[in-house]
């Protein structure tokens, strides 16, 4: 009977497509969060597969911190044009200008926390009742606890001690007025699965995932890209290094890794040999032991 057995990547693909279709069916105004990172690119690819030959029947929503890598924005705009998706952008800068959000101070200032405000405002403004995100359970210990369909109260908050049971694949998206859901189609994927799938499906990704020369500032054991968004301290200096990124977030908090990998095959070998998690390159998770849980409870992705 081995003949009728899906390999595990195809099984994960089938599961994710099921979840995306379920979201499109059960909700009135779903949206897919798009950050320009590999997970949201894979999720968008799966959404195309789910509804082909029709277009993706919901908008992509990008919460732009204003601190993105320029390569990410370029990639985003090219991809959206190619697949004919409807992209909505909401800017953290606008939340700051209107006084809804307050910029952090100091050399480690980041807009990571502010994103949540812009996100929740955008969900309310656009009346989004289900926001799909590319978060994976293998990323972080609080994310390991998340359901596929994760209920949020009217304040956008997550109550990890009181989650709805989720039986089989019978996903319950019923809710009261004002509440919404976060949906995680890639829950069961690992970093390795994502890379293998990108290689298998030949999915295009931003070039900063591959090796390149870049001016780097070493800070707290992290390799930060030098940019207008970070302040180089007196004790620090910016040096050219051969690097690539394992995850793509804000330039202010995403660390690079030294790497000569210039093909997917080499990236996959690197991931297989890696001794640290990919979130290890993110300073936003290093702020405290429960940094992710605290942010998630408040409505972060």
């Amino acid at each position: 009977m081995i003949l009728y057995h899906l390999n595990h990547l195809r099984e994960l693909e089938a599961e994710a497509i099921y979840i995306i279709r379920e979201t499109a069916s059960q909700f009135e105004r779903p949206a897919m969060l798009f950050s320009g990172g590999k997970d949201s690119i894979v999720m968008t690819h799966l959404a195309r597969k789910a509804f082909y030959p029709a277009r993706i029947p919901f908008p992509l929503l990008h919460i732009d911190t204003g601190h993105n890598f320029p390569e990410t924005i370029e990639f985003r705009d090219k991809m959206v044009a190619e697949i004919g998706a409807n992209l909505i952008v909401r800017n953290v800068q606008d939340s700051i200008n209107s006084g809804r959000a307050k910029e952090e101070k100091g050399p480690n200032a980041s807009r990571n926390m502010l994103q949540t405000i812009t996100l929740l405002d955008a969900l309310e403004e656009l009346k989004v009742d289900a926001a799909m995100g590319g978060a994976r359970r293998d990323e972080e210990k609080a994310r390991a606890k998340e359901r596929f369909f994760s209920h949020r109260d009217e304040f956008g908050q997550w109550d990890p001690k009181n989650q709805r049971p989720e039986l089989w694949m019978l996903l319950n998206g019923r809710k009261h007025q004002g509440e919404h859901f976060r949906v995680f189609p890639l829950s069961n994927w690992t970093e390795m699965d994502v890379w293998m799938y990108i290689a298998m499906e030949k999915i295009d990704i931003p070039n900063i995932y591959f090796t390149h020369q870049r001016e780097i500032v070493k800070r707290d054991g992290m390799l930060l890209a030098n940019s207008e968004y970070i302040t180089v301290r007196e004790t620090e200096k910016a040096e050219m290094m051969t690097v690539r990124f394992r995850t793509i977030g804000d330039m202010t908090c995403t660390g690079a890794v030294l790497s000569p990998a210039n093909s997917l095959q080499q990236i996959i070998e690197e991931v297989a040999a890696s001794k640290t998690t990919e979130r290890g390159t993110r300073s936003d998770d290093k702020r405290s032991e429960t940094a992710m849980e605290d942010r998630k409870k408040a409505g972060y992705f």
């Binding site: 359970r137 210990k141 609080a142 606890k145």
Partner: peptide, 24 residues
């Protein structure tokens, strides 16, 4: 502690909700 990832779980030393882990 590898699976008991919630603050409340670590404080009480028990598991409250399912944790998913992956390995190959």
């Amino acid at each position: 502690l590898l699976t008991d990832g919630l603050k409340a779980e670590r404080e009480q030393g028990i598991t409250i909700d399912v944790a998913y882990r992956y390995f190959a």
